[in-house]
């Protein structure tokens, strides 16, 4: 079951990623990007990393894609104006990458099921690795200082953004 889910998810991820770069219409590209990010989120879930899966959905498929859509609407790009000048080398690279990733997915799905479920999978779920609870505990004990300092970084970013945009 896990292997089947893994194979489906990775297939969707690779296919949609290829469609992101090959579509002429930028809105279609963004929509395929959402599909790609969601299937990667599912892959994270299969790895037992629930927290990262949730983050993937909220931050990437949510916030960042909204940002993309906003930019597209603000720029009001017409379909014809964005003919991409991708060279043959780039196209070749993309095709090779797709093939390699597909092979990898196939390899893991066919050969690596036992390895995946027996060692990494069990070990990961055994220590409740990747749950919101365990990450929260780490954040507020071992990484407390880092957590607090990150808030300073966010504050600096907010102050900076206001400083460069506000009216005099």
């Amino acid at each position: 079951m896990t292997a089947l889910l893994f194979f489906v998810c990775s297939l969707v991820a690779i296919a949609s990623a290829a469609l992101v770069v090959s579509r002429k219409n930028p809105v279609h590209s963004v929509l395929f990007l959402i599909v790609c990010l969601l299937s990667v989120a599912l892959l994270f879930l299969l790895l037992g990393a629930q927290f990262i899966a949730a983050l993937q959905v909220i931050v990437y498929a949510g916030a960042i894609v909204v940002l993309f859509v906003f930019v597209l609407m603000l720029l009001n790009v017409k379909k014809e104006t964005v003919t991409l000048h991708s060279s043959t080398v780039q196209k070749l690279g993309a095709v090779i990458l797709v093939i390699v990733l597909l092979m990898e997915a196939l390899f893991v799905a066919v050969m690596g099921v036992g390895w995946l479920s027996k060692e990494a999978w069990i070990a990961a779920s055994g220590i409740s690795f990747g749950t919101v609870q365990s990450i929260g505990r780490e954040l507020f004990t071992r990484y407390l200082f880092q957590f607090e300092v990150a808030s300073v970084l966010l504050l600096v970013a907010i102050v900076g953004a206001i400083a460069i945009t506000k009216k005099r």
């Binding site: 990484y143 880092q146 300092v149 970084l153 600096v156 970013a157 102050v159 900076g160 460069i164």
Partner: peptide
């Protein structure tokens, strides 16, 4: 003495300097 702290410090410094 920790990579994460170092990186956060560097980013605080850099983001301020970008602005």
């Amino acid at each position: 003495v920790d990579m994460v702290v170092f990186f956060l410090g560097l980013e605080i410094l850099s983001v301020s300097l970008y602005v």
